[in-house]
C-alpha cells in the first residue's frame, strides 16, 4: 500500500515536471507580451498576411496530398507485399531527416531547370520563392503524420466487415467508401489535423525553398534575427494563439463527430 502510494507520488511529480516543461515556456511567452504589443502585432499587416498564408498553405497541402495519401495508408494496412517494411520506413523518412536537408532535397527537384520546375512554370505555379514551394515543403515534412494515423485507422477496421459487405453484394469501391473509410474516419481526421498542424510549424524546409512570401515561422525568425527577442516574441505569441485556437476548434469538431456516431 505504502509502496503504491510512493509510486503514485513519483509518477505524479514526474508527470507534473513534463507538463511544466511544455507549458512554462509558452506561458512565459504569453505573459511577457503586453496588451499593447498584442494589439500592435495584430494590426501589423505583414504579420496578418504571413499567418493567413501559413494557415492556407498548410491547409492546401493537407487537402491535396491528404487525398492522395489515403489509398497508400489503406494498402499499407491491408496488403502484404514484398518490401512492405521498406515502404513503411520510407513513409517515416521526412520525420527523421533534418528539415533543412529536406528543403535542399526538394529544391533539387523543383528549381527552375528541373522537369517539375519547368512544368510548374508552364502551369503558372512558382515553386522557388512561391506559394507552390511552401505548400510542397510543408506537405513533405508533415505527410507521415497523416499516412501513419490513417494506416492505423484502417488496420483497426476488422477485415471481416469488409468481407461481409462484399458478401452482401457491394462492389469493392462501395465497400471502401461505405465501410472502410467511415470506420477509419476518426484516425484519418486526427491524421489530417496533425498534418495540417505540423505543416503550420515548418520552418527549415520552407525557408530554403521560399524565404518570400514569408510564412509565420520565417517571419518570427526574421524579426528575431533583425530586431531581437522583444520584436519576435509578440509575433510568436499571436501565431501560437491562433494555432491553439484553431486546434481546439478542430478537437471539438472531432468529438462532436464521434458523439453523433454513437
Amino acid at each position: 500500500m505504502l509502496k503504491n502510494w510512493r509510486l503514485g507520488l513519483v509518477f505524479l511529480f514526474l508527470s507534473g515536471l513534463i507538463l511544466l516543461f511544455i507549458v512554462a515556456p509558452l506561458l512565459g511567452m504569453f505573459l511577457q507580451t503586453s496588451g499593447d504589443q498584442y494589439l500592435e502585432t495584430i494590426a501589423d499587416a505583414e504579420v496578418r498576411r504571413s499567418i493567413r498564408l501559413t494557415l492556407l498553405a498548410s491547409l492546401a497541402g493537407t487537402v491535396l496530398f491528404g487525398i492522395a495519401a489515403i489509398p497508400l495508408s489503406y494498402i499499407l494496412a491491408r496488403k502484404e507485399f514484398f518490401l512492405k517494411g521498406l515502404v513503411n520506413g520510407l513513409v517515416d523518412l521526412p520525420v527523421v531527416i533534418p528539415h533543412s536537408a529536406a528543403g535542399i532535397a526538394l529544391l533539387g527537384i523543383v528549381s527552375r531547370g528541373t522537369l517539375l520546375g519547368k512544368a510548374g512554370e508552364a502551369a503558372g505555379i512558382q515553386f522557388v520563392g512561391g506559394v507552390g514551394g511552401i505548400v510542397l515543403a510543408m506537405s513533405f515534412v508533415s505527410i507521415p503524420f497523416l499516412i501513419n494515423a490513417a494506416r492505423d485507422g484502417f488496420a483497426g477496421v476488422p477485415s471481416r466487415l469488409e468481407k461481409a459487405a462484399l458478401n452482401l453484394g457491394a462492389s469493392p469501391w462501395r465497400v471502401f467508401f461505405t465501410i472502410s473509410l467511415p470506420l477509419a474516419r476518426r484516425s484519418i481526421y486526427t491524421g489530417l489535423v496533425m498534418m495540417w498542424a505540423r505543416g503550420l510549424s515548418e520552418f527549415g524546409a520552407v525557408v530554403i525553398i521560399a524565404y518570400h512570401p514569408m510564412v509565420a515561422p520565417v517571419l518570427i525568425w526574421e524579426r528575431f534575427a533583425s530586431f531581437g527577442l522583444a520584436y519576435a516574441r509578440p509575433v510568436a505569441a499571436v501565431f501560437v494563439a491562433v494555432c491553439l485556437a484553431v486546434f481546439v476548434v478542430m478537437r471539438l469538431l472531432s468529438k462532436k463527430q464521434i458523439h453523433a456516431r454513437n
Binding site: A164, N167, L168
Partner: peptide, 29 residues
C-alpha cells in the same frame, strides 16, 4: 466474384456495421 454468388453468409461474430443503425444495416444489400 463474391458479390455475384448470391450465397449469403452470417458470420459467428455477425459482423454488423457498427456505424450504421439497424435499418441502414438491412438496407445495405
Amino acid at each position: 466474384k463474391i458479390q455475384q454468388r448470391r450465397i449469403g453468409l452470417v458470420y459467428q461474430d455477425l459482423s454488423l456495421f457498427p456505424h450504421l443503425n439497424v435499418e441502414k444495416n438491412i438496407a445495405y444489400p
